[in-house]
């Protein structure tokens, strides 16, 4: 009973804040509502007993992605009213496609059935939830059963890093950088010169 109430509480807030993300006029408000939606989704995961995913959602999405969004929104001069210009004209067709997709999902999920042989084929044998916490369960599988996928995701992240550098890093001439070794190896004789200045005259 209490669980159901809590579920509906978090679910309602998630949906409402998701709607606010799209509709609010101020982009900073949108991002803040997005963070609220992430938090409530994390709470929903907690209710399902997936505490690891819940924490990841908070750490990754709230901690990194949403903050990055906030930076982008505040740092870049994006004209959001201009971006919204087509909203009214595209609304009917977008709504139509959304409704069609939604109905399709309903129909296909309504026919959800899973045969006994499909359950037997479940790829990774999952331990009983009571025996092991799900962080431990993921840890056991991630570096053993799924080591190939883990390594490939490492490569993907490397490519993302290279890509970001390739596309944005510029070697600007005339930028002053601190080179400590140069600073330390400076000798007074190289840079200091003593000049006799006569009274009443400049250097």
């Amino acid at each position: 009973m209490i669980q159901a109430l809590v579920f509906y509480l978090f679910a309602t807030v998630t949906v409402l804040s998701a709607v606010m993300v799209v509709t609010s006029r101020n982009p900073v408000h949108s991002v803040l509502f997005l963070i609220l939606a992430f938090f409530n989704a994390a709470a929903l995961f907690l209710l399902m007993g997936a505490e690891f995913i819940a924490m990841m959602l908070v750490v990754v999405y709230v901690g990194a992605v949403a903050v990055l969004f906030l930076f982008v929104v505040m740092m870049l001069d994006i004209n959001f009213t201009a971006l919204r210009q087509g909203f009214q004209t595209y609304l009917p067709i977008g709504l139509l496609i959304g409704v069609v997709l939604f109905v399709e999902i309903l129909i296909s999920l309504g026919a959800w059935s899973i045969g006994p042989e499909m359950i037997a084929a479940a790829s990774a044998p999952t331990p009983a939830p009571a025996d092991v916490s799900n962080t431990k369960a993921i840890g056991k599988l991630l570096y053993t059963q799924y080591v190939l996928l883990f390594q490939i995701s490492g490569l993907i992240l490397l490519v993302a890093m290279i890509g970001a550098i390739v596309l944005t890093l510029r070697q600007r001439p005339g930028v002053l950088r601190q080179t400590i070794s140069e600073q330390v190896s400076r000798r007074p004789a190289d840079v200091v010169s003593l000049v006799d200045v006569n009274k009443g005259e400049g250097v």
Partner: peptide, 21 residues
């Protein structure tokens, strides 16, 4: 289907009574 592995999918998907989803 309950599995992501191709080998498992091949045994499960026989073409009979395939779910709509």
């Amino acid at each position: 289907s309950g599995t992501t592995q191709f080998a498992g999918l091949a045994t499960v998907l026989t073409g009979e009574a395939t779910p709509l989803g």
